[in-house]
């Protein structure tokens, strides 16, 4: 295992509070909610494991040497798939239940069930082919088309398919959550400063940097 202090990016002399702060920041960054439906979620999951292990290791060492209770208990049950969910944050999306569950809800047909499995395993071409051959373009079909688009990076189309799914089946919580997320424009996403994420938020905020910061000439 790597040096746990290096993993959390703090010196060995850091106080318990500093260790905890560094841990919480990293946990927010690599949290499943920040990598929801992200094609790189598996890499984030690895990171999360590493951070949790490092934090637990530091706590173990510190409680062993008899400092006052270590940096504050064990890892927060942050994690991918199962486990307790994150409670302390501000605007994280709940639901969807992490990656293990992903698109695992029961489908109205066996073909759409296969589409969900293909999306979960990252095989988008197969999911697309199955959807293309499925003639009943019902709410779930639209939702899954949206999910494939999102993973491909086709954000605008994803949103439009989710909208159609919600119009066809307004009471469905799964479709609603997906659309809500698209309509929030990732505004709850991690940002190092903790301030809100977004083009409009930042551009409208005069506290943000003035434009000249970005167009500063190099050769002056």
């Amino acid at each position: 295992m790597n040096d746990p202090y290096q993993v959390l990016g703090v010196p060995e002399t850091a106080t318990d509070a500093e260790v905890k702060k560094a841990y919480l920041n990293l946990a927010r960054k690599y949290h499943p909610d920040n990598y929801h439906d992200n094609p790189l979620a598996d890499l984030a999951q690895e990171k999360m494991k590493e951070i949790n292990a490092a934090y637990e290791e530091i706590n173990k060492r510190r409680s062993g040497r008899g400092s006052a209770g270590g940096a504050g208990g064990s890892a927060y049950g942050y994690g991918y798939g199962g486990g307790s969910s994150y409670q302390g944050g501000t605007s994280y999306r709940q639901g969807y239940g992490g990656y293990q569950q992903g698109y695992g809800r029961s489908s109205s047909s066996s073909v759409l069930q296969q589409v969900r499995m293909a999306i979960n395993s990252g095989d988008l071409s197969r999911a697309e082919a199955l959807l293309a051959n499925y003639t009943d373009h019902n709410a779930e079909w639209n939702f899954l088309r949206g999910a494939v688009c999102y993973r491909r990076g086709w954000m605008d189309e994803a949103k439009r398919y989710y909208q159609t799914a919600c119009q066809m089946e307004p009471g469905n919580a799964e479709y609603r959550q997906a659309l809500d997320y698209m309509e929030s424009g990732a505004s709850g996403a991690y940002r190092p400063s903790g301030s809100p994420f977004g083009t409009e938020v930042c551009a409208a905020n005069s506290m943000c940097l003035p434009l000249w910061c970005c167009v500063l000439p190099l050769c002056c």
Binding site: N38, A44, M155, A186, S187, A189, R191, G198, T199
Partner: peptide
């Protein structure tokens, strides 16, 4: 304008999450 800014933000979010890995 609002809808377009959101679609840009989703791409920036994808860049940022990739960058952190």
């Amino acid at each position: 304008r609002h809808d377009f800014a959101q679609t840009l933000d989703h791409s920036i979010h994808m860049m940022a999450t990739a960058f952190e890995l």
